[in-house]
Design a protein around this nucleic acid. Structure first.
Lengths: 173, 173, 173, 173
DNA sequence: GATGAATGAGCTTTCATTCAT
DNA sequence: GATGAATGAAAGCTCATTCAT
């Protein structure tokens, strides 16, 4: 990946997060990236191709967040870790996930439901805890996880910790 | 409000919910409404004006949902009622709220944070229940309420009841 | 002519003078006149019909300005009088003539060359004065008359008198 | 400046002169220029931007007409030269100035009062001639100059010379 | 790889005009 | 005579995309 290519990606993330996919012109991305408009199409074929790239990156980012789970064995620790993820994302990831969230309303693509990646691990954990309805509990857990993500993306929250403790309690973690 | 005017509104709700604000052309709204494109602008001035109208309608809808709360006094009953709201919305409301949710990523307007309307009632209830940190609990409650709304809007859930019971338990309701 | 009809005309004059013919919408005229948009078309058939009416009125106004000439016999007095006309027009006439002037660039109509009405009188006067080239002198006179009109319409001139004396001298009047 | 760009400018001049600013669509300009409509906006941002360009060009044209004055010293010669300017403009300049004149009724911009550029030279000349009221005489001179311009723009005059001599006489030049 | 001139389809919006009431 | 809801054509403008260099 050349320097210009990654400059385009970063500009796209910022602008998509700020103004939405449709609200961002390829020209504005090019300008912000200090690059000619044509180059975007050379590298990504489409404006849509840019989104594809962002989805890929998001998936990789999330995979990275999931991978430490392999070394954890206790289900409560696993669930705690998952719940902590939205509270620990950095500024650039925040923008990236904001893009993914906003795009979900405009583009139909299963891959945009990023949190689905956590489902197996969560279900497995609740089963290990002998929860009496692990499937429902998983669904609720995911739902709340999504609420937490949304909250973090929308608010510059410093009160994350309070929310976190509160959630742990509700899931007996 | 003439018949054509409300036809425009209904078409706008459907199309915005389906394709997003930017993804919907005024021409497509007009066609679906069986109306000339110009009429949209006579009645709503702007494409943006159409959104303003939808926001107003949403606020009214939500006010209607809140008003029964006045007759409830027990805090647990109040909170239960609020949690049940997303599970009881009809098909047209679903579309309407989908529009509001999707637009939040493109238009910055405080009124789009519809759930804020519930905040006073929720806080008051947790205080009445002598919760040891009512402010945090309210925030968590709202966050989860949003997650529930999102879930309901995205999925054609028939499993609502299971989720509902699960949530009641988590808030000791 | 009903009250509403003349109200439309006055509004049209003001708005055309301010924003030009194309820059003025029939709706804005209707609003300013306190009248429905449809009524304009009942009375004047067209937007263009409104202009026709304004041209008629202008011609009448100018005829009124010319008519006192019939009682004047001395050529110098006649020319002096003509030269004084632009300096003595009222506020409403000013607007009206502004409309005529601005419209000349958009609509081709011989009647818009209002000053042509003066030509016979001017030519006759210079002939009576035994001017050695009355035709050329008339053309120059008309040209300068037009310059004076333009000046008066564009500037809220109080220095009219100085200009007037200056012109008299140049034509030996 | 690319070839297409100047083609747009020339088409704009012709059409604006013919049909006025509001009466000319950007599409018609594009067609006449043999160019896509979008290109107009790439180069000039706005329809208004096109006018800005025409104003600039006019100013440059007029500067070119003024510059020979630097080499003239005798005030009478200077004034004679200025009076001769409207009679010596070419076909394309004629169109250009027609645009400027017609636009003055629709757009308020000091730069559209092109003749103001001559004011200092004229005033200076009348002072050098010890005219007893040089300020008034300058105003009158400018007014007549404007009348002359108007006359030339409106009529395909071959009788320019007669007018010219006539004017010289009136200003003792 | 990189540019930027150029395109053309599609968008929102305006507006003169019509017509049922 | 008067209204105002409704139309539809045309306007200015944006933008993803192409392509010669």
């Amino acid at each position: 990946m050349t320097e210009k290519e990654s400059s385009i990606i970063n500009s796209a993330i910022s602008l998509f997060a700020q103004d939405g996919y449709d609200g961002t012109s390829t020209l504005s991305i090019a300008k912000k990236a200090g690059v000619s408009e044509g180059l975007i199409f050379k590298h990504f074929k489409n404006k849509r191709g840019l989104v594809e790239k962002l989805i890929e990156i998001s998936e990789e980012k999330l995979e990275d967040m999931i991978s430490p789970l392999k070394e954890l064995s206790h289900p409560k620790v696993i669930l705690k870790y998952i719940l902590s993820i939205p509270l620990n994302i950095g500024q650039q990831e925040k923008k990236l996930f904001t893009v993914i969230y906003s795009i979900r309303w405009q583009i139909n693509d299963k891959r945009l439901d990023l949190l689905k990646l956590f489902e197996p691990k969560i279900l497995e954990s609740f089963k290990a805890l002998n929860h009496n309805d692990p499937i429902s509990e998983t669904r609720t857990f995911l739902m709340i996880l999504e609420g937490t993500f949304l909250y973090v993306l929308k608010n510059d929250s410093q009160d994350s910790l309070l929310i976190f403790d509160n959630l742990l309690e509700k899931f007996n973690l």
